[in-house]
Design a protein around this nucleic acid. Sequence first.
DNA 1: GTGAAAGCGCTAACAG
DNA 2: CTGTTAGCGCTTTCAC
Lengths: 346, 346
Amino acid sequence: MSALPPSPADPTAPKPARPAATIHEVARLAGVAIITVSRSFTQPGKLSPGTLSKVREAVARTGYVPNRAAGTLRLARSGFVAVLVPTLKGQNFSGLIEGLTTTLAEHGHQVLIGEVGYSGPREDDLLRSVIGRRPDGIVITGVMHSAEGRALLAQSGIPVVETWDVTPTPVDMLVGASHEAIGYAACTYLARRGRRRLAHVGGDDERAARRARSFVQAASHFGLEAPVLHTVRSPSTHADGRLALGELLARRPDIDAICCGSDPLAMGVMTEARVRGLAVPDRLAVMGSGDSEYAATHVPSLTSIRIDGLQAGRIAARLVLDRLQGVPIEHKVVDLGFEIVERESA
Amino acid sequence: MSALPPSPADPTAPKPARPAATIHEVARLAGVAIITVSRSFTQPGKLSPGTLSKVREAVARTGYVPNRAAGTLRLARSGFVAVLVPTLKGQNFSGLIEGLTTTLAEHGHQVLIGEVGYSGPREDDLLRSVIGRRPDGIVITGVMHSAEGRALLAQSGIPVVETWDVTPTPVDMLVGASHEAIGYAACTYLARRGRRRLAHVGGDDERAARRARSFVQAASHFGLEAPVLHTVRSPSTHADGRLALGELLARRPDIDAICCGSDPLAMGVMTEARVRGLAVPDRLAVMGSGDSEYAATHVPSLTSIRIDGLQAGRIAARLVLDRLQGVPIEHKVVDLGFEIVERESA
DNA sequence: GTGAAAGCGCTAACAG
DNA sequence: CTGTTAGCGCTTTCAC
């Protein structure tokens, strides 16, 4: 029966600055103990119908929503899993997020998405604030974490899934594809189709660099000339693709195939090729990566490297859930593999 | 000096199932009171250099990261703002999120992103779990919230910014553009350029419907024939665009302009037009929406309707921050406006 | 079927 | 400059 505090501050606030209802007010209104209100959410079956409906009415009247910060503190379970992605631009990670969200939702967990950026320095700070919220799991997407970050993760005791990438020394669990293998396979694919003067365009992030490296290696194995390389800022764009083709042709006018680190990049290359009157794929083969929605329906359709993000998300979610339930994890490292989706452009 | 609990459960767990360090252990290790550890984070200047370094060392040794669930409970401030978007696919909302993230980060707030989906029924559930985490603000993107959802929001006492849309009855604050005005302006733009047989392709969500409606209205004002309308599933895709052009031409072979509800849709229309030998813009004008990265560099470049998402995010963040600091809000409703970026395609 | 007590980890307020 | 006390809102354990 305490008096309301004298509403301070903002006179334009539309809502009574009255703070959200707590379990105490609901209990008082319903004439029960707070524990009964709590049980109306967690085990409604254990309440008598009469009590339950009294409580439910009080909940509805007050718009009461339990404060999960209190629950998290008490239970040492926050009910959410954090996902750290480099960027939300482009549709690279939407499949992963969808896979995580749906699988985790089935088990009552939510997903918190954090954008790390490709830069890196802020990474540890972000990691710290994420850990501070005590997620039940952390899914890290293609981040090269610092030694300090790795230590923080390890000491947090939180299940960690690294994904999108295969590293030799995972912090904990791993769901990824080998970018070395991808680069090698892309080169093999082009070489087998008779391409001889190759080029590679990729972003300036770590994974892209690894792909490019093994692309070059493969070319050397096949006895091809060293591919012409071009690097652009990540995340790479259509505009980058147009410029890249110009650059590459200036350096080596007779290239007959370009492997691109993303689909927008590949689309840019194809646009520029069309402008320059270079037929794709006859004169120039173009490969993308990401298997974007438009890859299949563009003309010419785009050959693209596909990593199954949806599946990666589902697996990562399962790993976290299993660890939380104490189920022994059989394979802590899962190789997702990849697929070269063959279409018209290469 | 308590013994470690007998590690239970998962034998494959790589890390000591030892839970994360608490402030007590750090304090003990450093030989100070827990409040001193707390202050080493909140007001390090108030500690003597010696004490500070002792504490910092203990923090580093344990990998201690303060539990924000406890802080949230104590301070009634969670330090994050929740953003609810219909989808992360496509780049529609990445600008908004970027604007929010950067502005809020400057003030020590994080952003939690939630994907609502265009469907709707799950919306109230998601809203409830978001409110349960007591965000310091909620930014809702183009969601038609139910009466119950609105009540929940109002009773939560949390600052709410609706965005991306203008509604007549905002729950609290609003940053948006009028989709009626956009539809009208798009039609005006095409009519002024001499187009007479118009078509409109849009998604099946509420906002798209409003644009289409006022597009039709405008056509009627200008004395044009009723535009041919086609609706696709949101979020609309390149594939939808290709099919849409076929549909529209089948119904009305002589259309000379198509207004599309998204850029992928417009790209699909342009691809199909190229396949069919219809010159853009001479034979067929095409407008997109979203002003995607590739709009400027595609050939022909794409005329597109642009809403400044980055700016929307910044403004929404400011509104939330002002409300939190008790600053009177001058304009609770901000009309962002929009811009038709004129390029080659229309 | 219902309730009282205790405590999760932290920080504001008030000593000293 | 440092420490003690109290309590944020909830759920587990143990009683009735």
